[in-house]
């Protein structure tokens, strides 16, 4: 089994008898201590997200993960259907397998699918995506108690907080990792 001592976002590792994708990796050093890397890991089978802090330089086993560009086709009662852009092969992932990521998918959205031993197990949505605003109540002027934000609804049904100047019909860029507003999109 291949190992690495550089723990980075995007790597898939074997940890606690499972295959996990590192979805966040941050430098930490406890006062007076050695450097550590704090990771958020997503289980590639169950989608469970856990945090673990590894000692910097600690060897971890890598999972052989293949990333391939795919297109989201449609959702039916069994799950989400995709097509591999290279092989045109179609496959389905259940709602459980996609977890929270499913909500960002619009028809024809391009994503990366992750394959372990030839089987697609999960997808990676782009970190930033553009959405049309379908509901945006007029903001209250001078309402600084809310930090100058209001709740808006995106075309995929997701509610996010955005600045007061955002109007219905605008395109906005959204961070799909935490659902936060990034900027107005063109």
């Amino acid at each position: 089994m291949e190992t690495t001592t550089t723990i980075r976002k995007g790597l898939a590792i074997n940890f606690k008898q499972g295959a996990w994708l590192i979805i966040e990796a941050q430098f930490v050093n406890p006062g007076k201590g050695a450097a550590f890397t704090r990771c958020k890991l997503k289980n590639l089978k169950t989608n469970q997200v856990v945090e673990n802090t590894f000692k910097s330089g600690e060897a971890v086993e890598l999972v052989d993960l293949l990333m391939q560009k795919c297109q989201f086709l449609y959702k039916d009662h069994e799950g989400y259907n995709f097509m591999n852009n290279d092989s045109y092969e179609q496959f389905q992932l259940t709602e459980d397998m996609l977890g929270d990521d499913g909500k960002w998918l619009l028809e024809n959205t391009e994503v990366y699918a992750m394959y372990i031993d030839g089987t697609p197990v999960s997808i990676q949505v782009p970190p930033k995506m553009d959405f049309r605003v379908i509901e945006s109540p007029p903001g209250l002027k001078g309402d600084t108690a809310t930090g100058g934000t209001k709740d808006i609804k995106l075309e995929n049904g997701v509610m996010i907080k955005a600045p007061l100047f955002i109007k219905e019909g605008d395109m906005v860029k959204v961070n799909t990792e935490d659902g936060s507003y990034v900027s107005k999109a063109n």
Partner: peptide
């Protein structure tokens, strides 16, 4: 999990951080 800890302090920090 304290696999690669070689000193008392390493174990301490690994447990503290996790």
């Amino acid at each position: 999990p304290i696999n690669s800890c070689e000193t008392w302090d390493d174990i301490f920090f690994t447990i503290f951080l996790n």
